[in-house]
Amino acid sequence: MNIDPIHQFEVQRYADLLRVSGVSFSFTNASAFMIGIVGAIFLFLTFATRGRTLVPGRMQSVAEMSYEFIAKMVRDSAGNEGMVFFPLVFSLFMFVFVANVIGLVPYTFTITAHIIVTAALALLVIGTVVIYGFWRHGTHFLHLFVPSGVPSFLLPFVVLIEVVSFLSRPISLSLRLFANMLAGHIALKVFAFFVVGLSSAGIAGMFGATLPFFMIVALTALELLVAVLQAYVFAVLTSIYLNDAVHPGH
């Protein structure tokens, strides 16, 4: 048994595929989980809607609810014009949600507990905002940083603050998800080690181990909440940021 709480985050290479200038694009457990998550999402949603029934069954209801949930979220945040981003937000939500929840299963790998993954997703969102914003509105997109109705002597400071806040978005977006996932999994593992360590110390230790054991149960419930909540937060913030790309004026 590996009693290292960090061990669960290790990327393990399964197959070496390609190496470009010293960086390996090998197939790892992270890759396997990414592919598995995509497959699970697609297969579930396809299987759930196989009947296309007028009155939905349980699984079709889940598929429809997730669709309507994200659709409403995007429409509320970014309006009807923002619905071009509906597939993106839906994919992001489902990807993060399934990654977070699958990561709670023991012996699995949590891809969202890697800063590079969350950063890439956050940069994808902000990149989409910037590219779509300039493509759609041209330089008018820069009005995002110039709120109307601000006194002219305050304007440079306000613009500076707006720019900094815009630049901090990908950082906060990626760090929030990463830190939540990482901390939760480490906490779970630490309490698990308490159980193992205490119960190896005899009968009294076994009794003592019940306390951290129940802590694991409670923490697992909390982590499930966090997993769902962080996926939701990620999707909501994505919709709000995308609103800036659609409606740059304040």
Partner: peptide, 27 residues
Amino acid sequence: PPFNPATFGSQLAWLAVSFGVLYFLMS
């Protein structure tokens, strides 16, 4: 491990592939 840059290339490549596929399938 999450801060080990040696894994970044592989993770990003596979993330781009898998998320691209997911986006394509979803949309």
